[in-house]
Write a protein that binds this DNA or RNA. Structure first.
Ligand SMILES: [Mn+2]
Ligand SMILES: [Mn+2]
Ligand SMILES: [Zn+2]
Ligand SMILES: [Zn+2]
Lengths: 140, 140
DNA sequence: TCTTTAAATGCAACAGCGTTTCAGTAAAAA
DNA sequence: TTTTTACTGAAACGCTGTTGCATTTAAAGA
């Protein structure tokens, strides 16, 4: 890891607080996207739930994490790669939701090119989700 | 239209009720995906909100409508094409969410092929969302 | 190091989405 | 027409996410 957690926060112009250090630590440890409820579960009662929502919003705004859409019904986030900026996220990779464990993974190795649009539509961003069985669940 | 609304309900093994006729009518009229809140708004007070949720769930289960994921945070649905079955939806087309009007459109003409997955992942379904400005909003 | 200030936090309250249970009603089958 | 089955309406509930406001804490300045 090139930067420590404290440095990541500092670089993105965020005050270094215990909430932010704990939450960001969870994202660095996880191999799949985490929702607010996951964070709340792992940090049982350590912080107020509103603070956690605001922490996630701040991280997203600064380009530290990005939203991961899936069919779970709640918003998940994953760490952004280094090319993500505060104003512009660059994460055109595949997202994979496992139907067994429910986890959703960023498959950064699978690049998703821009789709061709019919005339009259103007493209600004795109997103791809695959579903199936993940590596861990496949062997189990 | 090959079938009337009543016939569509009958063919899919659903009782023909006034709720279902009104709701399905809205989907046939709309050029974009409709959420529960849209339905509720257009049928102001005509039916109980729980009934509308159950109506949508029944339509989806029978392959009449399919879920349309976007960033709106609530579940939207659109009419399935004729190749959709009760057990298996076949709608690998592009979905487009307009950042101006918020509407999400099924672009049935834009086919989305299966993504290539890294070893160990098993694919069962996939989904693609594009964002930008829709035709109507682009000219306005 | 102490003080100031700007930002982050905790708490309470609230709104929206979606589900469950159960009693009453309506559609379809007999 | 009667019986059966499924659908509906109403109330209650849980979960997700937001807002306002008072308090606390981090960081900057003296
Ligand atoms: Mn990702
Ligand atoms: Mn569609
Ligand atoms: Zn899995
Ligand atoms: Zn539009």
């Amino acid at each position: 890891m090139a930067h420590s957690i404290d440095e990541v926060l500092k670089v993105h112009g965020l005050k270094i607080t215990s909430t932010r250090k704990r939450v960001l630590g969870l994202y660095y440890q996880s191999d799949h996207a985490l929702a607010h409820s996951d964070i709340e579960g792992q940090l049982d009662g350590e912080f107020d739930r509103v603070t956690l929502y605001r922490t996630l919003a701040a991280f997203e705004e600064k380009g530290i994490i990005h939203k991961v859409l899936d069919e779970s019904g709640s918003v998940k986030y994953s760490l952004c790669n280094s090319s993500c900026q505060e104003d512009r996220h660059q994460d055109h990779h595949l997202h994979f939701q496992c139907e067994k464990c429910g986890n959703t993974f960023c498959l950064e190795g699978v690049h998703i090119p821009a789709p061709e649009l019919p005339g009259g539509y103007q493209l600004s961003d795109w997103y791809m989700l695959a579903k199936g069985i993940c590596q861990s669940c496949a062997v189990a």
